[in-house]
Design a protein around this nucleic acid. Structure first.
Lengths: 344, 344
DNA sequence: CTGAAAGCGCTTACAG
DNA sequence: CTGAAAGCGCTTACAG
């Protein structure tokens, strides 16, 4: 059983292929009776449009590439869900690749656009090599590239992100209100745009509140569980221990707490710890983690929406400024008021 | 700057488009000097193949759909990584969709194959509606559909899975060797093929070892953290408490332990708990989780490999039996020898 | 080893 | 409102 084509439908409906095509993509333009005959013929033949043919003819791939730093990071799942939800509404498919895999396969990122595999690109990796960013920026399709979550400083791509600075400020202010004055920051990876943004806002907020910030209270990390574990060892070894730690990711916070717990340091009794992201697991963690919530579904949907507007209406002038989505404080049990015993 | 086509390359190289095409896809068949001239022309023009055109001409989409039950489940990330790794080696792209999203968008799963969007399908959801499975099985492209991790009993699709029965057996035997005799099983969701397979093997292994199994020691769950929490409440309420619990997933085990810990029940001192899957987090959990390890990268790679063989050589007779990949016991700190205090 | 030509299955400007 | 025809950019059987 061969799959049937427009030709087959046209033959059955006794109209031209042009008319079948119109009926399918623009029904208002054909007569009522034609519409009925064609619909009937479509049903009889079991016709499905051939997208390869349509793509070639319309010069559209009807799909979008999402580039992740790493497929195995659960942080991205909900963002993908949001992207995919919006794309499929518009009849677009979602293609996924990771930076590493594109590199390993010897392809260039821009090929996805150049070879008509994708109409646009949502990049969730701010750490692309500078020459890759340059190549993307110089490409004729640069208008159909957008960053989400992370971004590249100095590049002119539109982007979607959360209020990273505000998140750091809210974190400090939450800990401050609990009475903490000695607050450490466990950072993301050096060079990462989120790491710098959050750390920078943290430092400024500490200064604004006139809080001392010893150099060793900025603990370098990399968003991972294991970096959190290492940081816990550093914290334990400190002469003058901070009574609260603001971590740049939930995974960092979890690793930090896990290692402390192995050493019989209690959270939040001995030290308050909070994360950033509010991943699914934060609520289930022991203790449930106080965090800065990003709405990842919304980030995904917004990114897809902005990109699709640029794909569908390339000639309209689109604002190139970033869409900055709100964050919110989620208070759980890993942070608590400062008690006398912590300050001896 | 328009992107250049085969025509442009042919013009520059002063050969026909046929020759350019051959040079690119089958270089051995053209002369040395032609090969040089064409390569040069490709470089000069910056030619990239147009995949939409090639796909139409070759009647291949050069991409594969991976269907997930749910995009937001981190369990699948590494499997995707494995699939994607193999596909991209062969120049294929990976399309992702979730069962729910396909349903919501009003599409039928088979459309992906019918409309030339994908050449094949890897399905990670054994819980497809029976009418969907029937439709897939009846389709002319049924040979290019494969299940991984989960599968559908009674359907004849090839599949890749881990040794689920063996995993359950090893779990019981591990707990038995630690001295446990009263062992409970916290199950996956009713109706799920993994749930039944693991439970069934658990029950048989208990019987084989002549161990009592009270009905209430089979605790219904659904693979999630929160089901694990609920189960912990059930365990606490039991008159005759099992001294060890084998959970059908790591998430279940983590939820179970988390809730126990809130109630000051110690793992493994008061009860030994083990999971299934060995997800990344298992090692970082407190206590680090004993689990049955599945090699998810290998599952993904194997699935992609089997599917691609069927796509590339549709006429060869492929074994339709399942590929069953080994599991292994990973012993960590959530299980411990039975001590007298537990058996009073 | 190479070229001319057909054709994959659509969409759309043009003409009526 | 509808049809004939061109063409999107490739690949490949055929002929030489």
């Amino acid at each position: 059983m061969k799959t049937s084509t427009l030709q087959d439908v046209a033959r059955v409906a006794k109209v031209s292929t042009a008319t079948v095509s119109r009926t399918l993509s623009n029904p208002d333009v054909v007569s009522e009776s034609t519409r009925r005959r064609v619909s009937e013929a479509v049903k009889v033949t079991g016709y499905r449009i051939n997208r390869a043919a349509r793509n070639l003819r319309t010069q559209r791939a009807h799909s979008v590439l999402v580039l992740l730093p790493n497929l195995a990071n659960p942080f991205f799942a909900t963002i993908l869900e949001g992207i995919s939800r919006h794309l499929s509404q518009l009849g677009y498919s979602m293609l996924i690749a990771s930076t590493k895999q594109v590199h390993d396969s010897g392809e260039r990122l821009i090929d996805y656009l150049d070879d008509a595999r994708a109409d646009g690109m949502i990049i969730l990796d701010g750490g692309l090599a500078p020459e890759v960013v340059e190549m993307l920026a110089a490409a004729p399709q640069a208008k159909r590239i957008l960053f989400a979550c992370e971004w590249v400083d100095g590049a002119s791509f539109p982007s979607v992100r959360c209020q990273n600075r505000q998140g750091a400020r809210v974190a400090v202010s939450h800990l401050y209100e609990l009475g903490h004055r000695k607050i450490a920051h466990l950072t993301g990876p050096e060079g990462n745009v989120l790491m710098h943004t959050r750390m920078d806002a943290f430092v400024l907020e500490m200064a604004a509140r006139d809080l001392e910030l010893k150099p060793e209270w900025i603990i370098p990390g990399d968003f991972s569980l294991s970096a959190g574990c290492h940081a816990a060892k550093a914290w334990v070894a400190m002469q003058d221990r901070p009574t609260a730690v603001f971590c740049a990711s939930d995974q960092l916070a979890m690793g930090f707490i896990a290692e402390l717990s192995r050493r019989d340091v209690k959270v939040p009794d001995d030290v308050s710890v909070m994360g950033f992201d509010d991943i699914e697991l934060a609520e289930q963690f022991i203790p449930p983690l106080t965090s800065i919530r990003q709405d990842r579904l919304l980030i995904g949907e917004t990114a897809a929406k902005m990109l699709m507007e640029r794909i569908v209406s390339p000639d309209v002038e689109h604002s190139s400024s970033a869409a900055v989505l709100p964050v919110s404080l989620v208070t759980r049990e890993s942070t608590a008021p400062l008690v006398a015993a912590q300050t001896e």
